[in-house]
Write a protein that binds this DNA or RNA. Structure first.
Lengths: 258, 258
DNA sequence: AAAATAGTGTCTCTGAGACATTATGCA
DNA sequence: TGCATAATGTCTCAGAGACACTATTTT
């Protein structure tokens, strides 16, 4: 705000106010598909969706009943949308200190039939087990984890299709361009575990190749070897463990390698 | 939105509605500081700010009077915040088809003394000359272009300090990580012109070095040589011209060079 | 011994970076 | 001629990528 003209207009004209202000959260987890002993994991990126009830508390037919939607809710006036997302996520999953990122605003007129409702979209990364717990807590609403390629054959509520598409784009970008992959991993991990996470969103040959990736990981400035410690959880041969180092990574594309 | 519980709560409880919904725009331009014939340009990134009037149309003292602020205004109910930003920018500068990007939402309770006002922040990239034109059009409000390092010694209105800090961070990131640098350049440009744009936001040795950059530009997949054409606007020796190629760039940091 | 994953040795090739040199055309 | 900018030649070095091979441990 705060253009002079807009300001003076506003104080007399009283522009219409939005009807509602909400927060939605795309809750992602990476599930380990096959985990046999001494095997590197096969992982798969999944999104949590909630099926809307057929009727509301008054027994009236719910809008968008039966369709799948992102968890979320109204922002309280004493909090920001980000705080609301954090609160709602905690109510849903019982997990605190979760990686949460705002990635978009959806305010197209007509996107919600209840009126002018603005929503802030966030994505969250949660460990698989906290979602399983949640599911047990609340069997009233149907909660499911879906693989990325299953989602768009479901009936989705409101404009959640586009919100979910954007969430997927965002998390894929962030997984490859930032160090958030660590949020899906134990604090100490093997090269093949990091590789499995990255392979959920990329086909890049340099990441696919085991040897190439095992070599590469040691020269990444934001990853360091955990001295001496090994694990056998991914192979029979004891394997080196790595950890992320706190660091801001920012390589210009103009100096990258192609 | 659309958690079942939140939904039913809301339809009876009528959560408080925001008082206002606004759009702010951080308008950036890159001005050519010295331009002698046959010289590569020295460029500098600047941000447009508006000084708030002392009194409003009713003659009352304006809130945050005299302080510097981003242009912006209230979102109309028949448009999105992005459209509002586009409209307001056009009203300000008279320029259409401008690069505009949403980068943040500011909704902390108490950020605006008029009440619960949510603002969407965008940044825009406009050619230098359109801002000069605008300045001439409207001498009622003081409009100035400031260098990045001058901004934070100014008195800034509302929470615009943090909004501007984020804008600068965002545009710096985008300049180095995407191909938006082209928005500051003519459609055909020399290596030293692109270099000058990038040097407004980075010190990277590989970009600073003339020879290194001149070589590098030819192997960037998203830039191609304009065959045969040359210009002498940056040197006495005729210089090759380049253009951007439409392309999605996305190199994982895990395969970058360090 | 067989199987499976981790990790290294080695070779080739590309490109980064540094430095020197050449090319061009104005003043 | 002198100068400034553009562009190339050349050398060295690091690392990518491919392939083969070794290492470790379980069954």
């Amino acid at each position: 705000m705060s253009n002079n003209k807009a300001m003076t207009n506003q104080t007399k004209k009283e522009y219409p106010k939005p009807y509602g202000y909400t927060s939605d959260i795309a809750v992602f987890t990476i599930v380990t598909e096959e985990k046999e002993p001494y095997k590197p994991p096969k992982m798969s990126l999944k999104l949590m969706l909630i099926q809307r009830a057929m009727v509301n508390a008054e027994g009236e037919k719910n809008s968008e009943a039966g369709k799948w939607a992102l968890p979320g809710g109204f922002v309280h006036p004493n909090e920001s949308a980000f705080e609301a997302a954090k609160r709602e996520l905690e109510e849903e999953t019982g997990v605190k200190d979760i990686h949460l990122k705002h990635y978009g605003v959806y305010d197209e007129p007509g996107r919600d039939d209840r009126g002018w409702v603005i929503t802030n979209a966030h994505y969250a990364i949660v460990p698989e087990d906290s979602l399983i717990k949640r599911k047990a807590n609340d069997d009233a609403a149907r909660v499911e984890l879906f693989k990325i390629d299953e989602i768009f054959s479901l009936p989705l509520a409101f404009d959640h299709e586009i919100i979910i598409r954007d969430a997927i784009k965002e998390i894929k970008k962030d997984l490859l361009q930032t160090t958030i992959a660590q949020k899906f991993l134990p604090s100490q991990f093997t090269y093949s575990e990091l590789q499995a996470v990255l392979l959920t969103v990329t086909d890049d040959a340099a990441i696919k190749s085991d040897q190439a990736f095992a070599r590469k990981i040691r020269m990444l400035p934001f990853i360091e070897e955990v001295d001496g410690k090994t694990t056998t959880r991914t192979s029979k041969k004891p394997t080196k463990l790595y950890r992320f180092v706190e660091m801001n990574v920012m390589k210009p594309i103009y100096t990258a390698r192609y």
